[in-house]
Amino acid sequence: MNEIARRKMFGLFLVLPAFLFVFLVLFLPAANTIIKSFTEFSPMNLQQNDFVGLKNYQKIFGNEEFMDSFFNTLHFAGVSVFFELILGLVLALILNKALAFRGVIRTAILFPWVLPTALNAIIWRWLFNTDFGFFNSFMKSFGLISRNINWLGEVSLAMNSMIWVAVWKTSSFIALILLTGLQSINDELYEAASIDGASGFQKIKSITLPLLIPSILLALLFRSMDALRSFELPFALTQGGPGGATQTLSLFGYRQFFQFLKFDQGAAVSVVQFLFILVLGLIYIRVLKGERDT
């Protein structure tokens, strides 16, 4: 073997351990879940393993609770990502000008991101507490509400409260992604626009936004994928309540698996969720590739 071939073998050899681990822990289990979604299977009876075609899918799509959590998930992901993007953009534009206190500001915007989602949910559960919570007292002192409101316990409010908690936590991460995009824009463009007499708003509209589109797209896909698989937020904030108003696909699937031991139907749920994320993921890889080619 010549030296170049040996070096290539060496490269492959270095990647193999990581590949094997990831293959065993992520790829095989996911493949198994997909296969099981077409069979009749229960963890109580590991022998039984009959192919039943799309029966599990028919069952879950006939299940009202599934359909509710399906639309809840879309609602949650759509609305929260929309607001996160707008707030993230505003934040990034403000922070892009920051010259002093960079370290402190960075720490501040990264903080919501490092906060574990489940603990964040617990914190907000306390802030939203009907009888002793800060949120009600704050709203009352500004005269925005006249009686204490059960933010997490009323069907009409719970989803919006959950969206708020997600927006608080994630806008700053989006801002971070957009900030990297902003900092790669050449300052000369703005200078040239200033000479031509462009206003600040015009500059944002015709220079910043168009050049920021790749970063916006990345942030959008990144967060949508995350929002579509939301699990611990509803688990720790509302347990999917009241009356299923905040139950997401992940939470519904988890309950099928681990509470009702309907492994096969749970598998079908996670395949449906997986397909959503797959489509987004393929777009994501496309965008990354396009970025690299240009």
């Binding site: 822990v25 992520l26 095989l28 289990p29 996911a30 198994n32 879940t33 997909i34 099981k36 994928m225 579509l228 698989r229 699990f231 696909l249 992940s250 699937g253 988890y254 698996f257 681990f258 492994f263 749970g266 598998a267 749920v269 996670s270 395949v271 969720q273 997986f274 994320i277 993921g281 994501y284």
Partner: peptide, 11 residues
């Protein structure tokens, strides 16, 4: 990008 839910039960 795999959702944890799709690997959790098999694991």
């Amino acid at each position: 990008m795999f959702p944890q839910l799709s690997v959790a039960p098999s694991l």
